[in-house]
Amino acid sequence: MSIVLDVQGLSKSFGGVVAVSDVSFTVDKAELLALIGPNGAGKTTCFNMLMGQLAPTAGNVFLNGEKITGMAPRKVWRKGIGRTFQITGTYSSMTVIENVQMALLSHHNRLFDVRHYAHKQYQDEAMQLLELVGMQEQAERACAVLAYGDLKRLELSIALAHNPKLLLMDEPTAGMAPKERIALMQLTADIVKDRQISALFTEHDMDVVFAHAHRVMVLNRGELIANGSVEMVRSNAEVQEVYLGGGNLYNNAADTHHA
């Protein structure tokens, strides 16, 4: 299998606080990989370093063999990574379809066009992307009035606009109802399969993770403590400790050996 994303020894410290420490992993083509871990484990920091929102203190990121470490997000995007955020950041003054059109305009390098009407460009393409996530009926609605779950779906269709090789999804189902969560992850799994793209996502809902992820990585206090199949991670003692052993690990690891 070919490796799409190769992360080597990625570290980030803020002053004296080590947020991410020596994280290495790869993502294969058409693989749906989950990154889990308790709050504050460094998942979002990791994502921010992959996409260029943060510059790593050490380590490197390669996309299809090309080094993208420290590149600005807009350049990383052009290299073929799409991203959704934990808290959505869609353009609230535009309609749903215009949000997608905006990404398409950027993809087709039309941002400095001052002749044509923007809302008439790439309508069909945008509509197809909205259909993919089941948002076609809301295309003309103002983005500001959407329900949160719909915003999340819209964000996904935007992230797919430039045919990415890799999709980064930071808590794609946060704030959604349980039924919606399952549907969205099913959708993501289908997209990964149909389009043969890779996806890396973080998630707190274990049902969602275990149902769809091809592989799971566990991050705790900035370090990768497990990386393998769903069954492997499920039976991993350290992972159980992190998730079931509760807060003890944060206070004193020594006390928890007989837990």
């Binding site: 950041g89 215009e98 905006m102 001052v114 923007a118």
Partner: peptide
Amino acid sequence: TPFGYALRASRDSVRQAEA
């Protein structure tokens, strides 16, 4: 035009626009 839209996008959400 797309330029005007990009300007509004940069106002609405810098993060999303840059990403």
